[in-house]
Write a protein that binds this DNA or RNA. Structure first.
Length: 696
DNA sequence: GCCGACAGATTTTTT
DNA sequence: ATCTGTCGGC
């Protein structure tokens, strides 16, 4: 085995060697944080301080977990790495709830209720409470309830502090929603953290058991943990307090789902005498990129100040690309990507990052047009597609024949003549007669023989699968289920039939990698799109800034740097959220290794109409010395029409986003006006702030 | 219970 | 511009 301490810098080595007690690693972007985490785990094992079974490592995404396991594997061998507990918070929650279901509020075969299903339940609750979805959308209510759950607020407590009419509606829905979850034997995403937390808090013996089992804990992306997650960690933490928290407050971008930067900022207060290590040497980006990113983030106030540095002295300037429309933006960026590929770079070295998923479409169309291989990450998740959810619902019924959500889903998809009313009758009858929903489907007292016959292929396929589930591979089971139940046939004469069948084929492919249905279902429920991105370096990746966290690319186009988008309009009047938007930009910028382009369009199509857009206020904070501007042809032409000889200094009627011409710097775009100070980006000259009260 | 036509929202980010 | 949910007629 390789020594875990070699090939690390001094700070990294310190972090890896700090094996006992609480350790805080404040790791800047690109500072080798994953390296530190993996080497630390390897070091714990290598020095025989801990056995692999005593380690628990929590990551933010499944992909990060997989990568970490692979890297630890390389250091300590596969056998040892396999024995570590390594996964996401939600994965950990599922594991605890399955193992300890006796102490938990649901069965061992519980259903994971994803956001869509959760919204469906809320809708149901609204209907029965006579709350019209007109005024308060179920989505809105769902997010309020989710926020309440992720700040550990009970239905009662929530009701007590209701402020708005919307909250009042949510307060009425909340308890009913919880009831519906229980009826469906389901946990929603929040429950997957909260339920284990309660379980551990209430059962000392169970808590002890895990504290003794996992004596070394580590957590990645600690800045993005929410209170229940933090509490869960602390309950799992035994008396030795062996917790290694790694994160970067500069990269905290999940406060909207209840994450608290305070967890990382207060770590040293929470654990007096902890070892704190700062990793600030960056191994990823060139110095212009780093300098620009540093300057952007330095404007924030609510943070620990640190500055990334690099030995890399050279590098191309950060480009600011000004274009006239979102279409022009897509086309300019595509040209840039094409140039990069023609210059010998792989498509996979390029990434297009944006604030909102809605922005992806223009790029998708343009990339397709130019035959550039690409992949859109996020948006409609593969596992959220209707046919995938239908197929999973069928499989689900083999594991849990009581899942009303699954039965409803598949009924809607393929059983003609049964609607919500009949389903309600089935549910009621099954409950009263203590039989499963599936059993009730073949009961004369519930369904007419005609309807029983409609269900017959499904029930038969389920029964068959039931008997062979144990000893046949999942791929075959899945195929038999989908064929036997008639679901596959039902996809034949439907819109986008081929695509759906292809997706099903892909699902069967994935299933083939599993041996038991429960773990397959579980993984699918917790799998995000980002986890799916293969590392094949053959296509341009397009994704949101959130999804880009933890990744890196040779070239990054960070698009839509406009007021209302980045910062997003919903964040503009709240200073704390504005800081988060800035961090989002910082996260995006620090993904770039070699070349970074920030683009903004002066008009953008929204809901079908074209609206004027001002450049992001953040652009004004870019350092002049490392920035270059490209007015992308059209904009330059526009500037020539609008040349004001010496008139730049007349601010009357000038607005942010306008293209102007300066006698010395030539064409440029105004990105900020503050009193008599005017900030522009000039082609070939970068960002300049000029004083309009001074004569030219 | 089903289907088509229309109205209305949608766009912040995700496990 | 597109998608989703609701409503009315069958």
């Amino acid at each position: 085995m390789q020594n875990a301490l070699t090939s690390l810098n001094e700070k990294q080595r310190e972090a890896v060697a700090a094996l006992h007690g609480p350790v805080l690693v404040l790791a800047g972007a690109g500072s080798g944080k994953t390296r530190v985490l993996t080497h630390r785990l390897a070091h714990l094992i290598g020095t025989k301080t801990a056995t692999p079974q005593q380690l628990l490592a929590v990551t933010f995404t499944n992909k990060a977990a997989a990568e970490m396991r692979a890297r630890v594997s390389a250091l300590v061998g596969e056998a040892a790495a396999r024995q570590m507990a390594l996964g996401t918070f939600h994965g950990l929650g599922v594991r605890l709830l399955r193992a300890q279901h006796k102490y938990a509020p649901r069965s061992a075969n519980f259903t994971i209720v994803d956001t869509t299903d959760s919204e469906r339940l809320i809708r149901e609750a609204c209907t029965s409470l006579n709350i019209s979805p007109q005024q308060v959308t179920p989505r809105n209510i769902r997010s309020m309830i989710s926020k309440a759950k992720s700040t550990q607020t009970s239905p009662e407590a929530f009701a007590a502090e209701v402020q708005s009419p919307i909250a009042e509606a949510a307060a009425r829905v909340y308890p009913l929603y919880e009831q519906l979850l229980a009826q469906n034997d389901g946990y929603d995403f929040d429950d997957l953290i909260i339920a284990p937390l309660q379980l551990l808090a209430e059962h000392e013996a169970v808590r002890r058991r895990y504290q003794q089992q996992w004596r070394w804990l580590s957590v990645d992306e600690y800045q993005d943990t929410n209170p229940p997650q933090d509490a869960l960690l602390k309950l799992l933490l035994g008396p030795e307090q062996n917790l290694c928290a790694v994160g970067d407050d500069y990269q905290a971008i999940y406060s909207w789902r209840g994450a608290q930067v305070d967890h990382i900022l207060q770590f040293e207060t929470q654990f007096p005498g902890c070892t704190t290590i700062y990793l600030t040497q960056n191994y990823r980006s060139t110095s212009p990129i780093l300098e620009a990113a540093n300057q952007i983030i330095a404007v924030n106030e609510d943070q620990k100040h640190k500055e990334l540095w690099t030995d890399e002295k050279t590098g191309e300037a950060v480009q600011v690309l000004a274009v006239t429309s979102d279409r022009a933006e897509a086309s300019s960026v595509c040209t840039g990507v094409q140039d990069a590929i023609e210059a010998g770079g792989a498509a996979g070295e390029c990434a297009i990052l944006y604030r909102t998923n809605a922005q992806s479409r223009a790029f998708e169309e343009e990339l397709m047009l130019h035959n550039i291989p690409y992949q859109i990450v996020g948006g409609i998740r593969f596992y959220d597609r209707a046919e995938i959810k239908d197929a999973m619902a069928i499989l689900h019924l083999t594991v849990n024949p009581n899942s009303a959500l699954a039965l409803e889903r598949i009924t809607k998809a393929m059983i003609v003549g049964v609607g919500l009313k009949t389903i309600a009758r089935i549910k009621l009858y099954a409950r009263e007669h203590k039989m499963s929903l599936i059993e009730a489907l073949s009961d004369d007292a519930v369904l007419t023989s005609r309807l029983q016959a409609s269900y017959a292929p499904l029930t038969r396929a389920l029964a068959e699968a039931q008997s062979q589930l144990k000893d046949s591979p999942m791929g075959a089971t899945m195929e038999q289920l989908l064929k036997g139940s008639g679901y596959l046939a039902s996809l034949k004469d439907v819109e986008r039939s081929e695509e759906r069948l292809e997706n099903i084929a892909e699902l069967i492919n994935v299933a083939a990698g599993y041996t038991d249905a429960a773990s397959f279902i579980e993984d699918v429920a917790l799998m995000s799109d980002i986890d799916q991105t293969t590392d094949a370096k053959d296509r341009v990746l397009c994704m949101t800034l959130h999804a880009a966290k933890g990744l890196e690319f040779e070239q990054v186009w960070l698009v839509g740097c406009e007021e209302g988008l980045l910062p997003h309009r919903n964040s503009i009047d709240r200073p704390a959220e504005l800081e988060e938007e800035r961090r989002l930009l910082y996260v995006g910028m620090t993904r770039a290794k070699r070349q970074l382009t920030l683009s903004h369009a002066s008009t953008r199509t929204l809901h079908g109409e074209s609206l004027p857009q001002a450049p992001s206020r953040f652009l004004a904070d870019l350092p002049e010395s490392v920035t270059q501007t490209d007015l992308a042809g059209e904009a330059t032409a526009a500037a020539l029409d609008d040349t004001i000889t010496g008139g730049l200094w007349d601010l009357e009627g000038r607005d942010v986003g306008e293209i102007v011409s300066h006698p010395q710097f030539g064409p440029g775009v105004i990105i900020q006006i503050s009193g008599s100070l005017i900030t522009c980006v000039f082609e070939g000259h970068g960002v300049k702030t000029l004083d309009a009260s001074m004569a030219a």
